[in-house]
């Protein structure tokens, strides 16, 4: 990609994956995924503003298998990015830098993001069934 052939760092492929680096990479990936979700949110709002017949397009897309899959992906990315983002904010004020604390917060973050994703789908789907 470089136009001047200068060496680039870091060389991810020469490192053994660690929890810390993998979580960091997924923070970026989840952020990029959430940006596509923001684009969907804009389209969803636009169809709602355009009227009921256009809003049906959004409803149709989001209830298709592709739509449900994307919603599942976006919801997990949102909770992951939220929980890991809080972890980053603690680092920003200089807290939790020890190796032990980093691993502890990493595992806590993974578990809470999974629980929150499950909880949001559990509540949402029971609301759907109760309609």
């Amino acid at each position: 990609m470089s136009d001047n052939n200068r060496p680039l760092s870091p060389h991810l492929q020469v490192y053994r994956p660690q929890l810390t680096s993998v979580l960091s990479i997924f923070h970026r990936l989840s952020g990029i995924t959430l940006a596509t979700g923001a684009a969907m949110l804009a389209c969803w709002l636009l169809t709602a503003a355009a009227g009921p017949e256009y809003y049906e397009w959004s409803r149709w897309f989001l209830s298709s298998w592709l739509g449900i899959g994307l919603l599942a992906l976006w919801s997990w990315c949102l909770f992951y990015h939220l929980c890991n983002g809080i972890r980053h904010l603690f680092w920003d004020v200089g807290l939790g830098f020890s190796l032990k604390a980093t691993y502890f917060s990493g595992i806590t973050m993974l578990i809470s993001s999974a629980l929150l994703t499950g909880l949001s789908w559990g509540i949402g789907l029971s609301m759907y069934c109760l309609r």
């Binding site: 949110l41 969803w44 709602a48 009921p52 809003y55 049906e56 409803r59 989001l62 209830s63 919603l71 919801s75 949102l78 949001s120 789908w121 509540i123 949402g124 789907l125 609301m127 759907y128 309609r131």
Partner: peptide, 14 residues
């Protein structure tokens, strides 16, 4: 998540 997300997932009408 508590509002918009639930509206989408629960299949709320227009």
């Amino acid at each position: 998540v508590a509002s918009v997300w639930m509206i989408v997932i629960s299949g709320a009408t227009y």
